[in-house]
């Protein structure tokens, strides 16, 4: 019962999943048992250990061209973590800046930025990503740029709300009386007050970023092959569902776990750090 209560109060399992993700991402070359690019035509679709026909060197089996699943999953974690890190960094930086400006200056600037956020959030994003990738080609940079462009509106809303409530406080007024410039007030006095919110906004974005990356990779417009990406790995198992379910299932499970864990951590952080946004009453 104590354990259950702990699990309910703190996101222990999600935090564990993320620790594992980060460790595997950082130390992928050390952990992975085999070369993720080495294929072996004799060992196609070898099942994971414990299923008839498995081989001891392939713990989680192999994919349709005989590459080790476990090693590819580990390197896939690296790709996902990198995509996640860079696109959230860029997206949240843009979002925070615009949110601060929008909340602090108000008026027409606020109106324009918020209208733009509304329109942006209503765009069918996957379609746009498809068009852009088909025109400019597949690359890691373009994918990160696209995901960053997808993820900035959320932070704008959250940071703006926080800025609105901070800017009427006395310490901002006294900074103004002392003659501090707008930029100084924004950077020195308002930005530190929004760190909590920025962190919440960043974690809340994790899930959708991973999902979108996986979807684009699944459609063949994400990370260029042969770099292992979970979405593309799932896609490669599409035609083998009946004889080799693990090819699609295992990377799919990885995506699922990371997204669920990200959502849980995001919700928990929000409830913790920002009572005003609390949804769980």
């Amino acid at each position: 019962m104590i354990i259950f209560n702990l699990l309910r109060r703190y996101p222990i399992i999600p935090a564990f999943i993320y620790t594992v993700l980060i460790i595997t991402a950082v130390f992928a070359p050390l952990i992975s048992p085999q070369d993720p690019y080495k294929n072996s035509l004799r060992d196609r679709n070898v099942p994971p250990l414990g299923i008839e026909g498995s081989k001891s060197e392939y713990i989680l089996g192999t994919d349709p061209i005989g590459r080790d699943m476990l090693s590819r999953l580990i390197y896939g974690a690296r790709v996902s973590a990198m995509v996640m890190f860079f696109s959230i960094l860029i997206g949240v930086t843009i979002g925070t800046t615009l949110g601060l400006i929008s909340g602090y200056f108000g008026g027409h600037i606020d109106e324009i930025i918020m209208r733009f956020v509304d329109i942006w959030a209503a765009l069918p994003f996957i379609m746009i990503a498809l068009v852009v990738v088909l025109i400019y080609g597949q690359s890691f940079k373009i994918l990160v740029a696209l995901l960053a462009l997808m993820s900035w509106p959320g932070p704008v809303r959250l940071v703006r709300a926080q800025t609105l409530s901070l800017k009427n406080m006395d310490y901002i007024a006294s900074a103004k009386i002392y003659g501090a410039s707008n930029i100084r007030i924004l950077a020195k006095h308002l930005l530190p007050g929004t760190w909590n919110i920025v962190l919440v906004a960043a974690t809340l974005n994790i899930g959708s970023i991973i999902l979108t990356e996986a979807t684009l990779s699944f459609l063949g417009v994400g990370i260029p092959p042969p770099t292992p990406a979970w979405g593309a790995m799932t896609a490669s198992g599409r035609n083998y569902l009946n004889d080799a379910w693990w090819v699609a299932f295992m990377p799919g499970m990885c995506i699922f776990l990371v997204v669920v864990a990200g959502n849980f951590i995001g919700d928990w952080l929000r409830d913790r750090l920002d009572p005003s946004l609390r949804q769980l009453n």
């Binding site: 799932t234 896609a235 799919g252 669920v260």
Partner: peptide
């Protein structure tokens, strides 16, 4: 709800097919 949110559409589609 969380499950529905976190499982990618394409994975649900594959599972349904399977």
């Amino acid at each position: 709800g969380f499950l529905g949110l976190a499982i990618p559409d394409f994975l649900i589609a594959l599972i349904a097919m399977w």
